[in-house]
Write a protein that binds this DNA or RNA. Structure first.
Lengths: 354, 354
DNA sequence: GAGTGTATTGCAATCGATTGCATAAAGGGT
DNA sequence: ACCCTTTATGCAATCGATTGCAATACACTC
C-alpha cells in the first residue's frame, strides 16, 4: 500500500524563508490586518499605541519586511520605474541615470534600467515587458523624433517622461537641454576666434538632439554672419566614435576643408581626433574641435576638449521629479523643462592659422 | 458630520487598464486556468491545440500580458535580479553591467541596479530592500573583504554572485580577474624596459582588488629581482582620480622617486597624469605609467595609457550565468571563476631616462 | 442607565495568476 | 456493453498584503 503522504512538502516554510505578516501577527496575537495598519505610517493612527509598539518590536525581531510585490498587487502600485537607456556604456549617460535613481530612490522607487541598443523594434517590446512588470512609470532616454513608442505609451496611459531627447509632436513631458543655445555658444566661440569655415558633424537626424543641434548650428552661423557656403555639415549615423571618424574624414577631404569642427556629441569629437591624426593633421593647430556634453574625462584628452556642458545629473533629477508628479496626479498636463548649457573652453580651440 | 464617502472609487477598472487573464478567459468562454495553461509553454501541452490557438489569438487581440508580479506571488519567483554597483559613473563598470543584463535579459530576468556609493551601512539596507522586493538573486560588485553583507546574504539563503571583487572568506560564488597575474604583466613589462625603481598606487586595502593587486605587485617585483627598497607603495583611499592624484604626489615627492608607476585602476592612473603635470613632469619621458582595467577611451589620453585589460563584459556574462545556475539549483556549491588579464601596451611606458 | 460617540480590532474580499485535484468526455481493448 | 486509459477542462485554494465594513469595548453626557 502506497500510502506515503507527500514528503518534504509538509515543511511548509520552515527553512529560512522570509517571515510574512501572518508570522508577525501570530507572534503578537493579533490579526494580520492590525499588523498591516501598525506598520503603515498612514494607517498606524488606527491602532493602539502600545499594540503598535509591540508589533513594531516583533516585526523587527523577526526581521519582517513587507513583500512589496504582494502589497503592490493589492494597491496597484509596484514601486518600480522603468528606464530605457540608449547605451549604458556611453559615459554621457551614467550621470543622467544617477540623477534619476537618486531622486526616485529617495521616494522609495526602484528602477529597472534597460539598455535598448539600436534596435527600434526591441524598444516597443521592452516597454511592453516593463508594463507587464507593472512599472508605475517610465523614463525614456531613447526616443526618436517620430517614435511609435510615444503613441504606445499614450495609449497605455502610463506616466512617462522623456529625457535628453524629445519627440516631434511634443506629446509627452520631457527634460532636455537647449540644443540650439548650445550650438550658438560653440559657433560664437569659434567665430570669435576668427574662424570663417566651420564644419558640423551632426548626429542622426531622426533624434531630436541630432536635428536640433544641426538646426542650431545653421541658425547660429547665419546669425554670426557666416554665409551658407562657408559652413559644411556631415551627418553621422550614430553617436559613436567610429561614425564620428568617418564623418570627419568626409569633412576633411572636401576641397575647402573647415578650420574648425563642431561635433553634436563628445563621442563624435573623439572620432574627429582619430580622423585628424589619420590625416596627419593636428588639433588645434590645423583644426579646432568643439564637442558637446562634457562627458567625464574629456578634459584629459590630448588636447583637452572644448565642449558644451549640459547638466546631466540635474536633468535626471528633474525628469524623476516630473515623473513623480505625474504619478501623483496622472491628469496633470505634460510639462517641458529646458536646461541651459554652458561652454567649457579648453585647448582644442584656437584661432585659425594665420 | 463628515460623512463624505470616497468618491471616484467606483471607477472599478474601466479606463484603459490592462486586460487580465479573466478578460481573455471570458472572451474565449473558458476558465482562467485554461488560459494560464495555454499561455505557459511548459503547460500548453495540456490544452487542446485548437483551444490553445483560440486563446493565443484572443490574448494577442486584447493585448494581454501576464502580470508578472501577480504570477510571481504565486510561483515565488519575481524574475527580478538586484545588482549593486560601486559607482555607475565609473566608466569601468558599464561593460560589466551590460554583460550581466544581456545574459539575464535573455532568460527573461530584469535587473534592478543600485548605485551604492561609499556608504557601507547603506549597502546592508539596500540588500534588505531588494530582498523585500522579492529579487530572485543578487549580483554584488561592491563587497569589501570582510563585508557583513556576505553573512547577511548567506543567512537569507538567497542566490548571490560576486563580481570583480571577492570576499575574504570566499564564501560566495564569484567571477574575478587574476589580480596578481595582472600586476605581474605590468611589472614584467616595466622591468623589461629597464625600470628598477617602480611605484605602485594601491586601491583601498579593504577590497580584494586593492589588496590582491598590491600583493601581486610585491610578488612580481620580488620575482623580477627587485629588492624591497626599490619598490614603493602608496595606498589610495578610493578608486578615484583625485585620490590617485594625491597618492601620486606622495610618491613623486619621495627622496628617490620612481621612474615608473603602476596604478591599481585606470581612474587612479588619471590622477597620476594630473600629479605629473602638477609637478611639471612628463609622461612617459620622466615617469612611465601603467593602468588597470582598460576602461573605454584611455587610448585617447595623452599619452595613450598602457594598461591591464580585463574582460569586463565577459565577467558580467559569466556572473549572470553563475547566478542563473544557482537559482536553478540552490544547493549547488559555490564556484569561483578567474579570468586572465592581458597587457595593452600603448605609449605611456618607455625605458627610463638614460 | 440609556444613548451616543469614539477608539480598536477582527473579518473577509480583493488584487491576478498558478496549479493540484476532481471531473467529464472520448477512445480502446476484450 | 463494460472498464480502463487518456485527454481536456473546470474548481478552488493559494501566494502576501491591504482596506471597507462590521463588531466590540469603553467612555462620557445628561
Amino acid at each position: 500500500m502506497v500510502h506515503k503522504t507527500g514528503t518534504g512538502r509538509t515543511t511548509k516554510q520552515a527553512f529560512s524563508s522570509r517571515p510574512t505578516i501572518k508570522d508577525v501577527a501570530a507572534k503578537c496575537g493579533v490579526h494580520p490586518s492590525t499588523v498591516s495598519r501598525a506598520l503603515s505610517p498612514a494607517m498606524s493612527h488606527l491602532v493602539a499605541p502600545d499594540v503598535a509598539k509591540r508589533i513594531r518590536a516583533a516585526a523587527a525581531a523577526l526581521g519582517y519586511q513587507v513583500n512589496v510585490a504582494a502589497a503592490g498587487l493589492r494597491t496597484g502600485r509596484s514601486g518600480l520605474i522603468g528606464v530605457l537607456a540608449p547605451d549604458i556604456a556611453d559615459p554621457g549617460f551614467p550621470p543622467i541615470l544617477s540623477g534619476v535613481t537618486e531622486t526616485l530612490g529617495a521616494e522609495g522607487y526602484a528602477t529597472i534600467v534597460v539598455d535598448v541598443g539600436t534596435d527600434c523594434s526591441r524598444e516597443q517590446e521592452i516597454v511592453d515587458r516593463l508594463i507587464a512588470r507593472g512599472v508605475d512609470g517610465l523614463v525614456l532616454a531613447t526616443v526618436t523624433l517620430n517614435d511609435p513608442v510615444v503613441g504606445h505609451c499614450l495609449a497605455a496611459s502610463i506616466p512617462v517622461v522623456l529625457v535628453n531627447r524629445t519627440d516631434a509632436g511634443r506629446r509627452l513631458s520631457a527634460v532636455v537641454t537647449d540644443d540650439e543655445a548650445g550650438m550658438r555658444l560653440a559657433v560664437e566661440h569659434l567665430v570669435g576666434l576668427g574662424h570663417i569655415r566651420i564644419g558640423h558633424i551632426a548626429g542622426p537626424q531622426n533624434v531630436s538632439t541630432g536635428a536640433l543641434r544641426r538646426a542650431g548650428f545653421k541658425a547660429a552661423a547665419a546669425r554670426a554672419g557666416l554665409s551658407a557656403h562657408s559652413i559644411m555639415i556631415e551627418i553621422s549615423r550614430a553617436y559613436t566614435r567610429e561614425e564620428g571618424r568617418l564623418a570627419a574624414l568626409r569633412l576633411l577631404d572636401r576641397k575647402l576643408a573647415p578650420t574648425a569642427i563642431v561635433a553634436a556629441n563628445d563621442l563624435l569629437a573623439l572620432g574627429i581626433y582619430d580622423a585628424l591624426s589619420e590625416r596627419g593633421l593636428n588639433c588645434p593647430a590645423d583644426v579646432s574641435v568643439v564637442g558637446h556634453n562634457d562627458m567625464p574625462y574629456v578634459d584629459m584628452l590630448s588636447p583637452p576638449l572644448t565642449t558644451v556642458r549640459i547638466a546631466q545629473r540635474k536633468m535626471g533629477n528633474q525628469a524623476a521629479r516630473l515623473l513623480l508628479d505625474q504619478i501623483a496626479d496622472p491628469t496633470a498636463h505634460r510639462k517641458r523643462l529646458v536646461l541651459e548649457p554652458s561652454l567649457i573652453v579648453r585647448t582644442s580651440t584656437v584661432p585659425p592659422k594665420r
